[in-house]
Write a protein that binds this DNA or RNA. Structure first.
Length: 587
RNA sequence: GCACCCGUAGCUCAACGGAUUAGAGCAUCUGACUACGGAUCAGAAGGUUUCAGGUUCGAAUCCUGACGGGUGCGCCA
């Protein structure tokens, strides 16, 4: 498929610039964007203004020269120079029409494949063993899954890996609790709840009972030394938890290629630290083994330095504790080695909260010194805050369970579905309610800029009105409903697309822009740009639907509009699919 | 103390160097053929983008400094 319009116009602009005998700045690429206002046209470029500044010449005059050199007759009906030197483009109806018609034959919905496919490992979700998933896991899980889907869609080779927390210090408490006060019946009924209970019991009791704390630590040491019984209990905890987690992932339609938890890297940690020492990357310090700054960065940017009273003091990355134990950073380094050596990872994306930023900067820097070459990306996101405006506390404090949120969302969706007439069986209604409920929760997360913190609210998470998943689903359902009304199957081959009405043209233009949205999402890992695009597409469809009757229209117009409906249907369903959201046929 | 993130309409958010009127949704108010599915559409009202400077033809966006909120900073993950 030909490049999307934005990319096409960028190419043409570059070609035009090349003929203008200008002394272009090194690596200059003209920017083309959607017109900020449809009165100006469909696309715009500020290239003349940027160049005008760089080359110290009049931007309007330059824009005029570029416009004269542009060869875009095949796709653009009007080029104009406006304001301080904007180049505005109005697409030719014919180009738009053939492009939209092309969507019907294109399995990738107009999204071009990446020129250079990469092998990308995406690390997301990462729940802890013996703890339920809570709302805090929503962001990593849904953002990671959506990014994985989009990266695959454009042709990257994606490996998803759930780096579960299966080897933390919490196991000291759990092991002791398991041995001293496990309720076998409760465990059978709800394993995670029971594991959480014994953990909390031990955790709070050991705060006032030093002997108990020691006993818990001793259990942990025995586990780490390979004690048979403790290993058996630990494996059982992991198995029981994963079983439960699977149900959550199934409910939200997410799967992983691997579940390599922290424990998988246990045997690699000792040798890794040994190598760090041998290569002079790490040094002993206060009985621990740490990595200090290598002094190659200015102190402001050095992740191993921190300022204190006008002085830069070391903020080392600890890779081995003074008691010989290993840490988060050690495991992460071993994980990087594994992903590069075993999987040939060229990029590793971590969908992990913003508070871990320093940690990753350190880990990536150590990895680089170890000669581990890959593009590391920390896809940070803001925190979900509790009602008090502070972070939900994972460890001690109360939070809202992910399953609880999903269940409530489905219940609310079910009430809506049950209250409507659409000829669905009871079984179908339950299925649709699930799709709506889960979709609403996913969309609430994905439509938001990932970096901003937000306060958890049932209202917001479960809303079915306005800019929500059901709004997009409803647009899709309306497209399907029209086709169910036809007496005969629609013969797309005999129809000709014409974008005559403004609402038709606006919809057609939107339909061509999925590629641009997906491209923008992957450029800086922001799924909300796709959510936003889909909202605008649904909006354009609803507007078209009100303005342009389909079934009652005269034959050739009717056929053309049916094509538009079909294209909308495909792009909406495919776009929602890229967010990990299913679109029901009726609702 | 230092570093990072954030501060936009009553509320929740978008826009991340572009255009006379900074966009949506919710809430409020008006309208729409007893609806090709009204979970819709058209419209009104609502903001000196926390404040003060600066750079720029052009700033919510970049820089500086305040103020306010969050997070992180040697043996948790």
């Amino acid at each position: 498929m030909a490049p999307m319009f934005r990319a096409l116009l960028t190419e043409r602009l570059q070609a035009a610039l090349a003929t203008c005998s200008l002394n272009l700045p090194e690596g200059f690429v003209p920017a083309v964007s959607l017109a900020s206002d449809s009165r100006f046209g469909d696309y715009q470029s500020n290239a003349a203004m940027v160049l005008g500044k760089a080359l110290r010449c009049n931007p309007r005059e330059l824009a005029g020269r570029i416009a004269a050199a542009l060869q875009v007759e095949d796709c653009v009906s009007k080029v104009s120079v406006d304001g301080p030197g904007f180049l505005n483009f109005t697409l030719a109806a014919q180009a738009l029409e053939s492009r939209v018609a092309g969507l019907l034959e294109d399995a990738s919905l107009g999204v071009p494949k990446a020129a250079q496919p990469r092998r990308i490992v995406i690390d997301f979700s990462a729940p802890n063993i013996a703890k339920p998933m809570h709302v805090g896991h929503i962001r990593s899980t849904f953002i990671g899954d959506a990014l994985a889907r989009m990266a695959r869609w454009v042709g990257h080779e994606v490996i998803t890996d759930n780096h579960v927390g299966d080897w933390g210090t919490q196991f000291g408490m759990i092991l002791h609790g398991w041995k001293s006060g496990l309720d076998a019946q409760a465990l059978a009924k709800d394993p995670i709840a029971e594991l959480l209970r014994i953990y909390r019991t031990m955790s709070s009791a050991s705060k006032t009972d030093p002997a108990l704390l020691e006993a818990c630590k001793a259990e942990l040491v025995r586990l780490q030394q390979g004690d048979e019984e403790n290993l058996r209990i630990w494996r059982e905890c992991v198995r029981l938890t994963l079983e439960q987690l699977q149900r959550v992932y199934e409910a939200v339609g997410i799967s992983f290629d691997h579940y390599l938890g922290e424990s998988f890297y246990n045997d690699a940690l000792g040798p890794l630290v040994q190598r760090l020492l041998e290569q002079g990357i790490a040094t002993p310090s206060d009985g621990a083994v740490v990595v200090f700054s290598d002094g190659k960065l200015p102190p402001q940017e050095d992740p191993f330095l921190i300022a204190e009273k006008d002085q830069w003091k070391p903020a080392p990355c600890i890779v081995r504790k003074s008691d010989g134990g290993f840490l988060y950073a050690t495991t992460d380094l071993a994980t990087i080695e594994h992903r590069i050596a075993q999987w040939g990872a060229q990029e590793i994306w971590y969908v992990v909260g913003a508070p871990q930023q320093l940690h990753f900067r350190q880990v990536f820097a150590v990895a680089a010194r170890l000669g581990l070459r890959a593009r590391f990306v920390h896809i940070a996101f803001g925190s979900i805050l509790g009602p008090d405006g502070r972070m939900f506390k994972t460890r001690s404090g109360e939070t809202v369970g992910l399953l609880e949120v999903l269940d409530e969302a489905v219940v609310r969706a079910q009430r809506e579905v049950d209250g409507r007439e659409h000829g669905l069986s009871e079984q179908d209604r339950a299925q649709v309610a699930r799709q709506i409920g889960v979709g609403a929760v996913k969309y609430a997360e994905l439509s938001q800029n990932r970096l901003t913190d937000y306060q958890f609210s049932w209202e917001k998470m479960l809303s079915l009105q306005g800019n929500t998943a059901p709004y997009l689903m409803n647009a899709y359902v309306r497209t399907r409903s029209i086709f169910r009304k036809l007496e005969q199957p629609f013969d797309a081959a005999s129809a000709t697309l014409q974008l005559a009405e403004p609402a038709e043209r606006a919809l057609g233009l939107k339909l061509c822009q999925l590629a641009e949205a997906v491209h923008d999402v992957l450029a800086d890992q922001r799924p909300n740009l796709l959510a936003n695009y889909l909202f605008e597409l649904a909006n354009a469809y609803h507007a078209f639907y009100e303005a342009c009757p389909v079934l009652k229209a005269e034959a050739s117009i009717r056929a053309s509009r049916l094509l538009l409906c079909e294209a909308t249907s495909r792009v909406l369903k495919g776009g929602l699919g890229l967010l990990g959201i299913e679109a029901p046929e009726r609702m």
